[in-house]
Amino acid sequence: MTIPISYYLILSGVVFLTGIVGVLIRRNIIAILLSVELMLNATNINFVAFSDYFRDLGGQVFVFFALTVAAAEVAVGLAIIIALHRSRSTINIEEFNLLKW
Protein backbone atom coordinates (compact mmCIF):
# COMPACT_ATOMS: atom_id res chain seq x y z
CA MET A 1 0.00 0.00 0.00
CA THR A 2 1.67 3.17 -1.17
CA ILE A 3 1.23 6.64 0.22
CA PRO A 4 -0.46 9.12 -2.16
CA ILE A 5 1.80 11.90 -3.36
CA SER A 6 -0.57 14.52 -1.95
CA TYR A 7 0.28 13.44 1.60
CA TYR A 8 3.90 14.27 0.99
CA LEU A 9 2.86 17.59 -0.52
CA ILE A 10 0.79 18.41 2.57
CA LEU A 11 3.68 17.44 4.84
CA SER A 12 6.17 19.57 2.97
CA GLY A 13 3.71 22.44 2.74
CA VAL A 14 3.17 22.41 6.49
CA VAL A 15 6.90 22.31 7.18
CA PHE A 16 7.52 25.11 4.67
CA LEU A 17 4.82 27.28 6.23
CA THR A 18 6.33 26.63 9.65
CA GLY A 19 9.62 27.88 8.27
CA ILE A 20 8.00 31.01 6.84
CA VAL A 21 6.31 31.75 10.15
CA GLY A 22 9.63 31.25 11.92
CA VAL A 23 11.43 33.66 9.59
CA LEU A 24 8.73 36.27 10.09
CA ILE A 25 8.15 36.11 13.83
CA ARG A 26 11.49 35.20 15.41
CA ARG A 27 13.83 37.97 16.51
CA ASN A 28 16.94 35.91 16.99
CA ILE A 29 18.99 35.72 13.78
CA ILE A 30 20.11 32.17 14.50
CA ALA A 31 16.51 31.05 14.87
CA ILE A 32 15.74 32.71 11.54
CA LEU A 33 18.54 30.74 9.85
CA LEU A 34 17.20 27.55 11.45
CA SER A 35 13.80 28.34 9.96
CA VAL A 36 15.43 28.74 6.54
CA GLU A 37 16.83 25.24 7.04
CA LEU A 38 13.27 24.06 7.71
CA MET A 39 12.14 25.49 4.38
CA LEU A 40 15.05 23.86 2.52
CA ASN A 41 14.17 20.51 4.10
CA ALA A 42 10.54 20.92 3.04
CA THR A 43 11.64 21.33 -0.58
CA ASN A 44 13.92 18.31 -0.20
CA ILE A 45 10.99 16.17 0.96
CA ASN A 46 9.07 17.35 -2.11
CA PHE A 47 11.96 16.54 -4.44
CA VAL A 48 12.44 13.04 -3.08
CA ALA A 49 8.71 12.30 -3.06
CA PHE A 50 8.41 13.31 -6.70
CA SER A 51 11.56 11.41 -7.56
CA ASP A 52 9.95 8.28 -6.18
CA TYR A 53 6.67 9.11 -7.88
CA PHE A 54 8.07 9.64 -11.37
CA ARG A 55 10.75 6.94 -11.01
CA ASP A 56 13.37 9.53 -11.95
CA LEU A 57 16.64 10.07 -10.16
CA GLY A 58 16.85 13.73 -11.15
CA GLY A 59 14.94 14.72 -8.04
CA GLN A 60 17.46 13.07 -5.76
CA VAL A 61 20.32 14.75 -7.61
CA PHE A 62 18.61 18.08 -7.06
CA VAL A 63 18.35 17.34 -3.35
CA PHE A 64 22.10 16.87 -3.47
CA PHE A 65 22.52 20.35 -4.96
CA ALA A 66 20.08 21.85 -2.48
CA LEU A 67 22.23 20.34 0.26
CA THR A 68 25.31 21.99 -1.23
CA VAL A 69 23.59 25.35 -1.37
CA ALA A 70 22.34 24.89 2.19
CA ALA A 71 25.87 24.24 3.41
CA ALA A 72 27.15 27.33 1.60
CA GLU A 73 24.27 29.41 2.96
CA VAL A 74 24.97 28.28 6.51
CA ALA A 75 28.68 29.06 6.24
CA VAL A 76 28.16 32.55 4.84
CA GLY A 77 25.16 33.29 7.05
CA LEU A 78 26.93 32.34 10.25
CA ALA A 79 29.98 34.34 9.20
CA ILE A 80 27.72 37.35 8.68
CA ILE A 81 26.16 36.77 12.10
CA ILE A 82 29.58 36.68 13.74
CA ALA A 83 30.61 39.88 11.95
CA LEU A 84 27.35 41.57 12.99
CA HIS A 85 27.75 40.45 16.56
CA ARG A 86 31.27 41.81 16.56
CA SER A 87 30.23 45.25 15.34
CA ARG A 88 26.91 45.65 17.24
CA SER A 89 27.27 43.05 20.03
CA THR A 90 23.67 41.92 19.60
CA ILE A 91 21.87 39.47 17.35
CA ASN A 92 18.37 40.80 17.87
CA ILE A 93 16.98 41.43 14.39
CA GLU A 94 15.22 44.66 15.34
CA GLU A 95 18.49 46.36 16.19
CA PHE A 96 19.61 46.12 12.56
CA ASN A 97 17.39 48.73 10.92
CA LEU A 98 19.94 50.45 8.68
CA LEU A 99 18.10 49.43 5.50
CA LYS A 100 14.61 49.89 6.94
CA TRP A 101 12.43 52.60 5.46
Binding site: L24, I25, R26, R27, N28, I30, A31, L33, L34, V74, A75, L78, I81, I82, H85, I91, N92, I93, E94
Partner: peptide, 20 residues
Protein backbone atom coordinates in the same frame (compact mmCIF):
# COMPACT_ATOMS: atom_id res chain seq x y z
CA UNK B 1 28.22 24.74 12.96
CA UNK B 2 25.01 26.25 14.33
CA UNK B 3 25.72 25.03 17.84
CA UNK B 4 29.26 26.38 17.64
CA UNK B 5 28.00 29.84 16.71
CA UNK B 6 25.30 29.77 19.40
CA UNK B 7 27.95 28.99 21.98
CA UNK B 8 30.51 31.47 20.61
CA UNK B 9 28.02 34.32 20.70
CA UNK B 10 26.66 33.32 24.12
CA UNK B 11 23.28 34.89 23.48
CA UNK B 12 21.19 36.03 26.36
CA UNK B 13 17.63 34.80 26.56
CA UNK B 14 15.80 38.00 25.74
CA UNK B 15 14.30 36.52 22.61
CA UNK B 16 10.71 37.53 22.22
CA UNK B 17 8.67 37.12 19.08
CA UNK B 18 8.95 39.64 16.32
CA UNK B 19 6.38 42.37 15.91
CA UNK B 20 5.77 41.13 12.36
Amino acid sequence: LYLFVVMILNVKQDDRYHSQ
